[in-house]
């Protein structure tokens, strides 16, 4: 397995290089000049030229590209034009909130999806099926920012149970502030998770080993818990892994709605301001994150299911 992991890690290098190059080219191709964007109605050819010199944008494109790549190698993403500080400093400040939001969302996604799928599979009643279907269809039809606003309105403004956005300043406050946004992001991946888990559970429930267990006189709930769920859980893990990309997207939107100072809202600001270095850094980091999570999923997969051999 060690060899397999090493090979996968090495494979990440061309992927990162590809993502980095693509994000560099796309940002340069995008219309709109960061200096003009920063200056707004104070932009004159003179002030724009000043900022180009200050930000190194007067250098030839190819030099800028190699400077960017050279920086990547040593972990230096350059400076943010908009925030006038290093990108690394910005990431240090804003990455924790996003990672925490993703983690809280994952927990909520599991808390919501697993019991619902188990209920449907264990009871096989039409009531549970209808509830599950109505829930997934409704949630799927509602974009995260809408769910977020609804949660703020009902649980924040009207009842005062949760803060109306913001992030607080201690760990407890962070977690408390992340409840509503966590639910909003979790709901974006719940429908897929519930459907695939329910389907996998149903498959397991009609497999021979469950029939055998039933013929031995085991209760339905015991069969689900001890046999069907273990096998269906493997599907759940891989689906969850694939959904990490969606979590990043969901966090981006939801962070803005809930005023969470994470990299999602940073990315949005950076794209609009054409803050090249920040956008490039975040693209590369998210790229690495998604690839790393896929690798991690494969490893966990092999641990949960001994039949899976990595490196085949």
């Amino acid at each position: 397995m060690g060899k397999y992991i090493l090979r996968r890690v090495l494979l990440m290098i061309p992927i990162v290089l590809g993502v980095a190059t693509l994000s560099f080219i796309l940002m340069k191709l995008a219309p709109g000049d960061p200096a003009a964007a920063y200056l707004g109605d104070k932009a004159t050819p003179e002030t724009v030229a000043r900022l180009h010199r200050a930000w190194g944008l007067d250098q030839p494109m190819i030099i800028q590209y190699f400077q960017f790549l050279g920086g990547l190698v040593v972990g230096d993403f350059g400076r943010s034009f908009l925030f006038q500080t290093t990108v690394l400093e910005l990431l240090k400040l804003r990455m924790p909130a996003t990672l925490m939001l993703m983690l809280v969302s994952l927990v909520f996604a599991v808390i919501i999806s697993v019991p619902l799928s188990l209920w449907v599979a264990a009871t096989k009643s039409s009531a549970s099926a209808i509830v599950s279907r109505v829930f997934t269809a409704t949630v799927q039809g509602m974009p995260a920012f809408f769910v977020g606003t609804l949660l703020i309105l009902v649980l924040g403004v009207n009842t005062g149970l949760f803060p109306v956005g913001g992030y607080g300043s201690s760990l407890g406050e962070h977690l408390y502030s992340l409840v509503l946004p966590g639910i909003a992001v979790a709901l974006t991946i719940c429908p897929v998770l519930i459907r695939s888990l329910t389907a996998a559970l149903s498959d397991s429930m009609s497999a021979e080993y469950t029939n055998f267990a039933a013929s031995k006189g085991l209760s339905r709930s015991k069969i689900v818990r001890n046999y069907a769920f273990r096998n269906a859980g493997i599907t759940g893990i891989s689906i969850l892994g694939i959904q990490v990309g969606h979590l990043v997207g969901g966090a981006l939107v939801v962070e803005n709605v809930f005023a969470i100072p994470g990299v999602g809202s940073l990315l949005m600001e950076a794209v609009l301001a054409r803050d090249y270095n920040v956008v490039q850094a975040l693209t590369v980091i998210f790229g690495v994150l998604v690839v790393a999570v896929y690798l991690l999923t494969d490893i966990v997969y092999s641990i949960v299911d001994p039949r899976v051999r990595l490196g085949a």
């Binding site: 995008a30 219309p31 709109g32 000049d33 960061p34 003009a36 964007a37 200056l39 707004g40 109605d41 932009a43 004159t44 050819p45 724009v48 609009l272 301001a273 054409r274």
Partner: peptide
């Protein structure tokens, strides 16, 4: 978007 508008203007 704003960045493009301002660039077009300058």
């Amino acid at each position: 978007d704003d960045a493009t508008l301002t660039t077009n203007r300058t």
